[in-house]
Nucleic acid binder design. Structure first.
Lengths: 348, 348
DNA sequence: TTGTATGCGTTATCAA
DNA sequence: TTGATAACGCATACAA
């Protein structure tokens, strides 16, 4: 019986049908053996498994997915996988998903909200069983709409999206972390503390500013106006913001940077101007990276365990994949202030 | 007509059949319209597209994959996605694949060769259209066997595998890079140059050692024995190797480190012993990262464009996906010595 | 240009 | 416990 259409590979691919013929049993029996169905005799199991190995049969997971209605894949949409923050998060998630038999499907949005929407649609069409996403823009209506149409469970990474009440969320205690960092700087006598962090509408930014203001308010200290720069998480923004701050007539005595990329920019600005953190200006950044640990002097950091966050995201997702009635949950991982030599008492 | 089996989601998923009914046309016509088949009248196209949008029809890519025999997915097996080297490479590849309509499926081998084999098999079962892999162990027979059984094209990242003649390879000019780095150090008067890099059987290690010896040989200088440490690419190994070197009675005057992770270890060792690169010892590392640029002093680096390497890997793969008769190719991207302040003339 | 019919490889139902 | 058979949703050969 020749192929009626253009399909077909090198022809070496065995199917269950051929295994069944070889073993002299029914197709359905092969399926039962391979899926460990309880009702199979030992002799049947033996016959089938011999045929399987004789023919080097390999299951076709695409056919299986179509029939079962589940692909055992989880989509992961991230702004930029080359950012260590996302890379570690994805590793934590992938490892955990893997343990449960799920494979991660990855796509970079490149910080473009339209890409988020596109990719969400693509993954829906690919019938992923779940989706983890770090939205480029948590209010983008198109993306929200695409996500709302998704029947599979969703986990948001560090984002607030009230329009997606069905989504679980994993975030970090940014407010607490920045509160401790700010208190630490205030304890050291700093008053003119500059804050450089990401886009204003994003959860991490909102939470950080909350912690920041709280620290000032708790001491009844008026915070100096115009020492806050919210914009984006990249190095160029960090460099520009830091440069601008440092050229003022009364510059800040301390800077808090909101990401590892911003830190790169801030350090570039400092180096360029011949300023040394820990001596000429106090510096705190968010998320520990080798650069922070091994800088001279080492940089004080608001730390969170990003690999763990990935693991938690996977857990939240699996929970809802396994039980579609499970309510969405919000998981907040703790942050920790790693005090290093870039913060020092003000000496004026 | 009720479902005969347990399948089915929330029921809101439309199929081509329902679109066909709604539009009052045949199922095959719907397919033709959606696949931009040339032989479709304007009226047909209009009818179908209206029905599609009225019903919010969404294609099922799993069914499509089964029927077409192609999944439009590419597997990517990497030791550790949280390593910036691999993360940037994967980004370059994913971006390029995306342009061609392919989606990347990611898995971490965690440097375990058994995982490589497992994952290769899983991706074969998932019917990926291509595979990019950075082998943990380029001689592991089980993994080689699994890869040989794969009908889809393969691209190796920075590995030699003579047993996989059908695979394309993307690598970097490690030999040239290290040759230039070594020449640079020799020019500066260094003679006792230590080399710390990855597992001996791996291509990058082999190539680097080749460039290293070449530099010595070209000047008829005997290289000091016992100043080479080949083992693994992680920070712990780098720290141990550097510590050992520096505790000797006649320590090296320069160190070459073979990866960003090794650099972290080497710097930890130096910092711990109170030694400053660029003053107490010369230091060169491989692959530029923020830590190298912003270290005090900045670290001299053998640079390669890893995002570009990912792009090239994707191109090599797509070439062979599109034309299965295309011969496998070897692409070597250039390396470049970025001279910074961690290398200095020996003053003895 | 359009419609009819078949099969991709699997799982699940039903009857034996 | 096993076998026959019908979908899963789609793309294509073939007939009209």
């Amino acid at each position: 019986m020749a192929r009626r259409d253009g399909r077909g590979g090198k022809g070496s691919e065995m199917t269950m049908r051929e295994v069944a013929v070889r073993a002299g049993v029914a197709l359905s029996s092969v399926s039962r053996v391979l899926n460990n169905h309880p009702d199979v005799s030992e002799s049947m199991r033996a016959k089938v498994l011999t045929a399987v190995s004789e023919l080097s049969y390999e299951p076709n997971l695409i056919a299986s997915s179509l029939r079962r209605g589940s692909t055992m894949t989880v989509g992961f949409i991230v702004a930029d996988i080359s950012n260590p923050l996302f890379a570690e998060f994805s590793k934590g998630a992938a490892t955990e998903l893997d343990l449960a038999g799920y494979t991660m499907v990855l796509a970079n949005s490149e910080f473009k909200k339209e890409r988020d929407a596109q990719l969400a649609r693509l993954f829906r069409w690919r019938r992923v069983d779940g989706l983890i996403i770090s939205l480029a823009d948590q209010d983008h209506p198109e993306t929200i709409a695409e996500l709302q149409r998704l029947e599979a469970p969703i986990v948001l990474f560090d984002r607030d999206a009230p329009q997606l009440p069905q989504a679980s969320t994993v975030t970090a205690d940014h407010a607490g972390g920045i509160r401790r960092a700010t208190d630490h700087l205030l304890d050291l006598g700093h008053r003119r503390i500059a804050m450089i962090t990401g886009p204003s509408p994003l959860r991490p930014t909102q939470e950080r500013m909350r912690g920041f203001w709280e620290a000032y308010k708790a001491r009844n200290i008026g915070h100096p106006a115009d020492l806050v720069r919210l914009g984006s998480f990249d190095a160029a923004f960090g460099e520009a913001a830091a440069s601008e701050f440092l050229q003022r007539s009364s510059p800040p005595t301390a800077i808090i940077s909101g990401s590892n990329q911003l830190l790169v920019g801030v350090l570039r600005a400092l180096h360029r101007m011949g300023l040394r953190p820990g001596r000429d200006i106090a510096l705190v950044s968010c998320d520990d990276v080798p650069l922070a640990e091994l800088h001279h002097p080492p940089i004080t950091i608001v730390h969170r365990d990003t690999i763990h966050m990935g693991k938690v995201a996977a857990e939240l997702l699996l929970e809802r994949i396994r039980d579609e009635d499970a309510p969405p949950r919000l998981a907040t991982v703790r942050t920790e202030l790693l005090v290093r030599d870039s913060t020092f008492p003000i000496t004026v």
